[in-house]
């Protein structure tokens, strides 16, 4: 096992090298900061405007949380319904796949038109882009249950619900978490995209406003915040996974 510092070192070195090259280029070329600000300026100006950026970050986080929770509830409900009924599977699966073919660019303005400038259209966009990986994660996980395991439980006199609760559900958790990790990376982007279309507050509208006043440094600062949130949420999901299904990682590591 490598020590944590050793594991993150390559990533830090690469980031530092890119930033150094970027800084050197902007200074040597004399390019206007409205076009490409040096990273030092992004950092300083971002810090100077930290209160404003934070006040725009909170709504984005709220939308992400509500939309993602909605996606987990709907995705799980859809997956369970699909698992219990072949008719539901036939009816729902094509609709689920089609929902992913909807261009969010086109739908987001419509959602704003229907639901106003409040939190609802943003949460819906987040849910729209995240519930599919969650649903598929569950459905694939349920389907991976061995027939022999179901037979064993039936031989013990288990009802269909007991088979689901005792084998299919816990057995599907690793697959569910894989879907969850994919979904969480889309979640923040979804919220910001919806804000671009129309919002009072939020990182998306912040970026648009700064862009219009040629504050490229603050746009980039907001992008950095966005990326940091996504990474943090991804790490939190992984940590949650390890806490909920510790047996999964342990048994995988012994098999290697």
């Amino acid at each position: 096992m490598i020590r944590p510092i050793g594991r993150v070192l390559p990533a830090l070195l690469l980031a530092a090298a890119i930033l150094a090259a970027w800084e050197a280029y902007t200074r040597a070329s004399g390019i206007r900061p409205q076009v490409l600000p040096p990273p030092s300026r992004v950092l300083l100006e971002g810090w100077a405007f930290r209160g404003l950026i934070w006040s725009h970050t909170l709504p984005t986080l709220g939308e992400t949380a509500i939309g993602f929770s909605l996606a987990i509830v709907l995705g799980t409900a859809a997956a369970v319904a699909i698992d219990f009924s072949r008719a539901v599977r036939r009816a729902l699966y094509p609709a689920l796949v089609a929902s992913q073919a909807i261009p969010v660019v086109a739908v987001a303005p419509l959602l704003v038109l229907w639901f106003g400038f409040g939190i609802a259209p943003k949460a819906l966009v987040v849910a729209l882009v995240t519930f599919f990986p969650i649903t598929v994660g569950w459905v694939d996980g349920f389907a991976s249950t061995e027939r022999a395991a179901s037979n064993l439980l039936r031989s013990m006199g288990a009802s269909r619900w007991q088979v689901f609760r005792l084998v299919r559900l816990p057995g599907a958790l690793p697959s569910f978490f894989s879907g969850l990790r994919i979904a969480i990376t889309y979640a923040v982007i979804g919220a910001i995209f919806a804000e671009y279309v129309g919002a009072k507050r939020g990182l998306g509208i912040f970026m648009q406003l700064q862009q219009n006043s040629f504050r490229t440094d603050l746009v980039i600062a907001a992008v950095v915040v966005t990326a940091a949130i996504s990474v943090a949420l991804f790490l939190a999901t992984s940590a949650l996974e390890r806490a909920v299904i510790p047996w999964h990682h342990a048994s995988r590591e012994t098999e290697r």
Partner: peptide, 17 residues
């Protein structure tokens, strides 16, 4: 029917969780 028998399949099917 199933109450008369205890059944052990080919794989151990111990649940990892």
């Amino acid at each position: 029917h199933t109450e008369a028998f205890a059944y052990m399949p080919q794989q151990d099917l111990l649940f990892p969780w």
